[in-house]
């Protein structure tokens, strides 16, 4: 799969994935959904238990997991209270939006013919995305890349480090996946910009 996404008429995009690649994308999207639901987006401030049960609003402090902290950064760098208020009213929606995008990605792969278990070696699937689906995929690629970059500790201008990492270093393989997602995203942006 050297081509990535190609533009389609009416603004969509098309890509062909091997069974292995499609399965990898599904697995990354599932992990993202898992993570987004894992550390519950609930208020962490000490409040009355009865009140807590009736409180459907979001959290006011940043998530502890570094990936979630990057996905939901503070909206105000100078005013912690304002950042907390913003978080309270937005993080729950942002979380469900991101989980929804990852769910759409999985649905599109399975609708295109990705089986529950990939055991057929020569499997290839064509995934055709509407403009709306393509936007969800673009955002999801971003979230996956942010997640991998946070786990890997990627910084500005560190390409040499990653390029010279020995193959037996487990980070090397993860970095290849990170680069591949970047390639897919780049081709999808290009396909949608026609």
């Amino acid at each position: 799969m050297a081509e990535g996404f190609e533009p389609r008429r009416r603004g969509g995009a098309l890509a062909t994935f091997s069974g292995f690649e499609a399965d990898l994308l599904r697995s990354l999207a599932s992990q993202l959904i898992e993570l987004l639901r894992n550390e519950a987006a609930v208020p962490t401030t000490e409040i009355d238990p009865f009140e807590a049960l009736l409180d459907f609003s979001g959290p006011t402090t940043a998530p502890e997991d570094p990936v979630l902290a990057r996905l939901f950064p503070p909206a105000d760098r100078e005013d912690d209270d304002a950042a907390g208020e913003f978080r309270r009213y937005t993080e729950t929606d942002l979380r469900s939006g991101k989980a929804g995008n990852a769910g759409l990605l999985i649905d599109a792969l399975e609708e295109a013919g990705l089986p529950g278990e990939v055991d057929e070696p020569g499997l290839f699937i064509d995934v055709e995305l509407s403009p709306e689906e393509a936007m969800a995929w673009l955002k999801c690629f971003t979230d996956m890349r942010l997640a991998l970059a946070t786990r890997l500790g990627i910084e500005d201008d560190d390409e040499d480090f990653w390029d010279t990492l020995p193959d037996e270093d487990p980070r090397s393989h993860v970095h290849d996946i990170y680069d591949w997602l970047g390639f897919l995203q780049e081709t999808l942006v290009r396909a949608l910009s026609r």
Binding site: R70, L71, F72, P73, P74, A75, D76, R77, E78, F86, T90, D93, L94, G97, K98, K139, T142, D143, R145, L146
Partner: peptide, 18 residues
């Protein structure tokens, strides 16, 4: 601006308001 910041976070960009 809160709407714009929230939208940027949806896209995965790091945005703040000031």
């Amino acid at each position: 601006m809160e709407r714009d910041v929230q939208a940027m976070h949806e896209y995965g960009l790091w945005a703040t308001l000031e």
